[in-house]
Structures are given as C-alpha cells and as structure tokens.
Design a protein around this nucleic acid. Structure first.
Lengths: 216, 216
DNA sequence: GTCTATAACTTGATAGAC
DNA sequence: GTCTATCAAGTTATAGAC
C-alpha cells in the first residue's frame, strides 16, 4: 500500500514520486485515498483503474472508499481540480505586480515548468484525464485552465506592444509554449539527469527566444 | 455508424475528421473497424471504449470483430503502429539527402506539425494510449519513436557544431520542440481559424528561434 | 469507520447456427 | 462472414453487521 512519497513507476510515465500540494489537500485517510488514486490514475488512467485497486493502494476496503467519496469520478474530479488550482494559484502569485512583460513571461514559464516537475503525476492526470469528467465537474477546471492561458497571452501581447517580443500570432506562440511545458510531466522524474531548475531555466530561455525577445 | 471521413467530436479533442494514412491501412470491413476504433479511442480512451461500441460504430456485431482482430488490444496496437510508422516514414522522407542542419530542422518540424494536423485523432491515440499496450506490442512503436527523436537530435547537434544553432543542451531543446508539436493534435481541427500551413510555418519559426538559429 | 456480502450491470471473448 | 446466445470475470456501488 503506497503512501505519499512512495516511488511509482508504470506505463506512461517516468519514475515519479506520489505527491500532492500541501495545505489545500485532504489529510488522514481521505488524503491516502487521494494519493493512491493519483498514482494509479497517472499510470493506468481513470478507466484502467478499479475502485478495488484504489482501496487496496490506500490500505482500506473498496467499500470504505464510499465513506470519503461517493463515486470514483469524484475522486478524479478532486485531483483534477487540485492540479488546476495549484497551477493557477502559483502562476498568479509569480506574476503579481510584475509589470514588465519579459519578466512576466519568464516567471510564467519558470513556474509552469516547476509545477510540472514537482507534481509530475498530478500534471499527467490533470492534463490527460480531464476529458473523462462530466461537463459539470470539468467546468471549474476548464475555467482555471483558460485563466492560466490568458496570463500567457497577456504577457505575450503586452510584450509585442512595447517591442520586447516579435510575434505575428501570439495565440500560436502561447500554445507552443504551454505545449512544451505540459509534456514535462511525462518524462521528468528522479531518474532524470537534469534538475528541476535546469529544466526550468532552459525552458525559460526557449520561450523567450520563441517569442522573439530582444532588448529594447 | 461513422465511416472514414466523418466528423467526430468528444471529450478530449477538438472536432476532427476520422482519417488514417492511405496505402498502408487496411480497407473493407477491417478498415471500417480500424476507423471506428480510432474515433472512439481518441475520444474516450482505450479502457473507456467497449468492444460493443467499436462494433456498432463499424456497423457490425461485436462478435464479428473477432474475425478481424483477435483482441481489443490488437486493434489499438495496429493503430499505434500505423501512427508511429507514418510519422517516422514522413520524417525520414523530408530529411532524405538534406545536408544543411537548418533545412533539416525546418523540414522535421514542418512535417511533424503537418502529420499532427492531418491525422490529429491518430496522433492523440498514438501519443496517449501507447502506454496501455503490453511491452511486446509497444516495442516496435517505441523503437520508431526513438528513431524519430534521433532525427531531431542529429539536426540540432549538427547545427550546433557548424554554428547555425546556439544551444547548451540539445536534448532539452529536442524535447521542447517535440512537445510543442505533439500537443497540436489535441487542439487542431476543422473549427480552427488557422490553416495547417499557418500552424506549420509558425512552429518552424518557433523551433528555429528556440534553437538559437543565426545566419552563419 | 471499517468490514463482508452482494446486487445490478458491463466487460472481453467464445461457441455454434445460418 | 455475420449473427444470436452465452460465459466467466470484472465493474461500480450499496446494505447491513460489527
């Protein structure tokens, strides 16, 4: 029965550690259920994981799960929302009161990458299992995703306006930048020979170049 | 019962058309089964799709499927292999006898993007359901994937050597470039306001900038 | 809170008629 | 080739004892 912090390796991802953001995440048995589901959903997908497996991984009987979550879908919904909340919260935090568009893009990319290295399993679940949720359960996460995308768009648009960036299509640039960051969750792990900081710094450099950054 | 060419919209992807590469793909009923599975796997995932749904979408009874494929996993295996083969074949084709690293990277990114726009559903299945396959069935696709990645690495490495590119870590650059291209399959579709060519040209520009391209 | 037991249903796959 | 019928196993979720 894996507990938070256990190594986890299977299927679609590099070896990774089962961790969730602190503070906003349930503790106790409910927290163990969430961590167990995180590892399993990341490795095998929502439909590839059974309630019984989640229970076993959390060290309880599958029936006991229903004392904490009234359906399997609600476990996924909580994970997906935690993932989107954490990313959006940290993106907001890093650009708060940063006026310069170049500094803003730098901070956004750096944070985006670090969230994907630090919570790689959560990122994989958040990005690749969201589609399983009903429209109602997916809505809040989709809103957060759109808000995060808007932060990137704003930085790029402002930078083009003041001449820091050189782009003919900021939307495509925003998609390219977020795409390269999103994939980090799929290959980054403890077995890696890059540190989280190295990846973040490299990707910041890539994003600035991609945006046509030049000194004004 | 959707047939090849039908529009398809659900869950994790933009509206897209169910198409497979011509020539190398089965025709007749076997082809219809493959197209049906492609649309369903892309939208709901392998484990989220039942044999009965595939049969219904192909216009035959689920039992009849087993005359063409002896297991559900083998349908996925064929799709995933077709996807990896098509990408690798077209990448090889575009760089054949191209000596200049800049031209090679340009061709690789352009083709990579176009394969993801033209076969977006296949790209989604190929990238996000490969992990479901047993090691034996996944092996040939993984080999093709590694070979494709090597083409990018070679172009970048050669470009750094002759001074066309400026990179301190070609592996991270290759991952960033392939990451931004891979995501194209998830958002590109007929409802889009960019053409396939616009996306390809923009991403080529992004990749060259990212690689630190400069005239020699 | 946690368990055993089980209901109600769906799953992948097969047998055998036509 | 295609179907109907069916199997055995697995699924989510619930009822009720402790």
């Amino acid at each position: 029965m894996p507990v938070p912090g256990d190594q986890w390796q299977q299927g679609r991802l590099a070896t990774a550690v089962v961790v969730l953001p602190e503070g906003t995440t349930p503790t106790g048995t409910r927290g163990r259920v969430l961590h167990a589901a995180l590892g399993l959903f990341a490795a095998r997908g929502f439909h590839g994981t059974s309630i019984r497996e989640i229970g076993a991984a959390a060290g309880i009987n599958s029936a006991t799960l229903y004392g904490y979550y009234s359906s399997k879908e609600l476990i996924l919904a909580e994970l997906v929302l935690i993932g989107h909340r954490e990313l959006h919260r940290r993106l907001l935090e890093t650009v708060a009161e940063v006026a310069d568009p170049v500094e803003r893009l730098t901070a956004l990319v750096r944070t985006h990458v670090l969230v994907h290295t630090d919570f790689s399993l959560l990122s994989v679940v958040t990005n690749s299992e969201l589609h399983v949720l009903s429209a109602e359960l997916a809505a809040p996460s989709l809103a957060l995703r759109a808000a995060s995308e808007q932060l990137r768009l704003d930085a790029l648009t402002d930078g083009v306006r003041d001449g820091s960036f050189d782009l003919s299509d900021v939307r495509l640039a925003a998609r390219a930048i977020s795409g390269m960051g999103q994939r980090v969750g799929n290959w980054f792990g403890p077995g890696q020979d890059h540190t989280r900081e190295q990846v973040a710094e490299a990707f910041v450099c890539f994003a600035l170049r991609l945006a046509g950054h030049r000194e004004r």
